[in-house]
Simulated scan of single mutants.
Amino acid sequence: MQFVLVGFSDFPNLQEFLFAVFFIVYIIILIGNFLIIVVSSMDPALKKPMYFFLAHFSSLEICYVSVTIPRILYNIETQNRCISVMSCATQLCFFLIFGTTESLLLAIMAYDRYVAICNPLHYILIINPTKCTHMAVFSWLSGIPVQIGVTCQIFSLHFCSSNKIDHFFCDVPPILKLACGDTSVQELSVYVVDTVVAELPFILVLASYSKIMVTLLRLPTAKGRAKAFSTCSSHLMVVILFYGSGTVTYMRPKSMHSPGTDKLLSLFYTTVTPMFNPLIYSLRNKEVIAALKMLFLKS
């Protein structure tokens, strides 16, 4: 009726240090993303589609990390690593849903930059407020039925050997490792879903940036190229961090998974990327920096 999240119990002498690290990281993620949401909604200079999607992305990051980090902190603080099957399934389901939303939002943000740079005269017509809202709603809702189905399929398996999940949260690879019998159908469904909700958006992102790079090289001035590239480079960094670690984790065969590697890769897309996102988007964006300065001066 329950699993045990092994987490970081291999390091008994580092429990207090790990708690402090995860707590500080969580606070940084909450504050950084909350500030982006505030300045994007309050500053008139940021009333643009790019910042509309950035505000949604920051909201998503808060939801995304809140699925995993509070549970990690609870497990370390109480040293009670037990989690019910229903709680584990719920955590996995929300994690997959928010992961799908992030993948789609990153693709939408790449499309926004593609239209802005490659088709600037029609940008206002193509990326209008109504279309922005529709794309944002699509990214938030489209993964719900798919990932509920994946979660139900995974937890319909029988777990008869061990109940110890060698991970710090309920993720697909370590749960499949505990299943008895043939899991090829579940693994195939994970590959198919991952291809649709992650790999296809990633291909669209790469296609968008290929077109953007060609357009940038055609700009007459170096200043114009630098300005256009600065608005895209931050997004590209986030894309590489998220898709890179996620793809390696979910597209590898079951036999190639190891607890240490899975934990390390998971740390990238569950904590490291959400922590650096506000820094990447703010420090590399003059408009966001100006809006933050105005916000702090008013306060």
Rank of each mutant, 00 (worst) to 15 (best):
L279K: 03
L292R: 03
H134N: 13
V137T: 08
I76E: 02
Q147E: 14
Y64F: 14
K298N: 09
K263Y: 00
V67M: 00
P174C: 00
M251C: 08
V193Q: 10
K177P: 02
I31A: 12
W140T: 03
P259T: 04
I289P: 07
L204V: 10
P259Q: 05
I127C: 09
V238A: 11
Q153I: 03
L14S: 15
M135K: 10
F155T: 01
P120F: 11
V196R: 05
L283E: 11
V137Y: 07
N128Q: 07
C88P: 01
M237C: 13
A290F: 08
T270R: 10
N285R: 06
I97K: 02
I154N: 00
P253T: 08
S139D: 04
H167T: 02
Y209V: 07
L204E: 09
S161G: 04
I203V: 15
L236P: 05
M251K: 11
F168L: 04
G224L: 12
S184F: 02
F57K: 07
F11P: 03
P278V: 07
H134F: 14
M237W: 12
I72C: 00
V65Q: 03
V185N: 13
L265P: 00
P174S: 02
P278A: 07
I148F: 07
Y123R: 10
S66C: 04
Q153D: 12
C152Q: 08
A45S: 13
I203N: 11
F23L: 15
S87I: 03
T273A: 11
H158Q: 12
S66Q: 05
L141S: 05
P12G: 09
Q147S: 03
L5W: 06
A207F: 14
M1E: 13
L121E: 15
L18V: 10
R252D: 09
S161T: 13
V248R: 01
T133H: 07
G32E: 07
A207C: 14
D182T: 11
I37Y: 13
A55S: 15
N163Y: 06
L30A: 14
W140D: 04
L73T: 01
S234E: 06
S41I: 13
P173F: 00
I62D: 04
L279Q: 03
S189V: 14
L283H: 06
K223P: 06
I97V: 14
I144P: 01
S255M: 04
V65S: 09
S139C: 11
